[in-house]
Nucleic acid binder design. Structure first.
Length: 288
DNA sequence: ACTCTTGTTAAAAC
DNA sequence: GGTTTTAACAAGAG
């Protein structure tokens, strides 16, 4: 699912493709996606994209000479951004489409289309309509930003702080890692992966981790996120790059979707259970 | 027809 | 007030 590495992959691709472009026309195919803002199209038309930032799994578009206007983009589970040079047929992935097939934009799952003055278009597709592209003021953006915890990939991420904070939490370590207010960016895939690398069982209560386990986990979380960014994220089902291609971290997964297969560390079989209400993969032998 | 999938949030419980 | 749990959301796959 789209987690920090997938969103960062999209951010880097969009930064390269749409920064500096001016929006000529906006089409909303699903009102809920834009927060049912009736002024959405009008407020964006004529605006020039200045930059694209990210916090956790949230994309933040800013505009030239518009210090009080931001576009917040969240993929949730099935959101996809596609960039098309000019409207028409394109090769690539996306829903209701097989590899190498041809897709017409806008398609069945296109929720918003941003047309630029040079004839190119950015499409936001989202099968399940949980994702959004919503406008926000500077104050609203700061209110949202304040709710995110630090990111494990931040060079200032503090293992000592992490270990001390875990002592105060009584839920499973998996539930705590999924909490974006505690640490930002991890989702179901990378939580399971980080816990495997740190040799900690997902069901362990957070306050029972030793200082060494906590510090190992902090390092592991940063490492899996960084390595996943380096290979364009993980495509498990729905995630696609802005050109429809897939992420390659699927080749590096140690536990996620590997239930029944051998642990590469101890040769035991990987199990799948339910922790924190999520499908959870781990090695029952070498994760303590 | 029924179960399963997950990111986030609102609401209720503690 | 902070923390925790649960349900809800939507649409498709199997």
């Amino acid at each position: 699912m789209p987690e920090l590495p997938e969103v960062e992959t999209v951010r880097l691709q969009l930064l390269h493709k749409v920064a500096g472009k001016t929006i000529a026309k906006v089409e909303v195919f699903n009102k809920k996606t834009t927060g049912s803002n009736t002024k959405f199209e009008k407020l964006l038309t004529g605006k020039k994209i200045k930059s694209i930032d990210r916090i956790g799994k949230l994309l933040i578009f800013s505009f030239k000479n518009e210090p009080n206007l931001f576009l917040l983009g969240h993929l949730k589970m099935t959101g996809q951004f596609f960039f098309i040079d000019k409207r028409g047929k394109v090769k690539g992935g996306g829903h209701s489409l097989t590899a190498g097939d041809t897709k017409i934009f806008p398609g069945k799952h296109t929720r918003v289309a941003f047309g630029f003055t040079d004839g190119s278009t950015l499409y936001f597709n989202d099968m399940r309509k949980f994702g959004y592209t919503k406008l926000a003021s500077k104050a609203e953006l700061e209110a949202v930003r304040s709710k995110f915890g630090p990111e494990p990939i931040d060079i200032k991420f503090d293992g000592q702080w992490f270990a001390e904070k875990l002592k105060l939490r009584k839920r499973s370590i998996k539930a705590v890692l999924l909490d974006q207010q505690f640490v930002a960016g991890l989702g179901n895939i990378y939580v399971d992966e980080a816990l495997w690398h740190a040799k900690v069982k997902p069901s362990r209560l957070a306050n029972t981790l030793t200082k060494k386990e906590a510090k190992d986990l902090a390092v592991a979380a940063g490492r899996v996120l960084r390595e996943a960014i380096a290979v364009g994220g993980t495509t498990f089902r729905d995630f696609a790059h802005t050109d429809g291609k897939e992420g390659n971290y699927s080749d590096y997964l140690e536990v996620f979707a590997r239930n029944g297969e051998k642990c590469r560390r101890c040769k035991n079989l990987i199990e799948k259970t339910r922790v924190a209400g999520r499908g959870t993969h781990f090695c029952p032998n070498c994760q303590k």
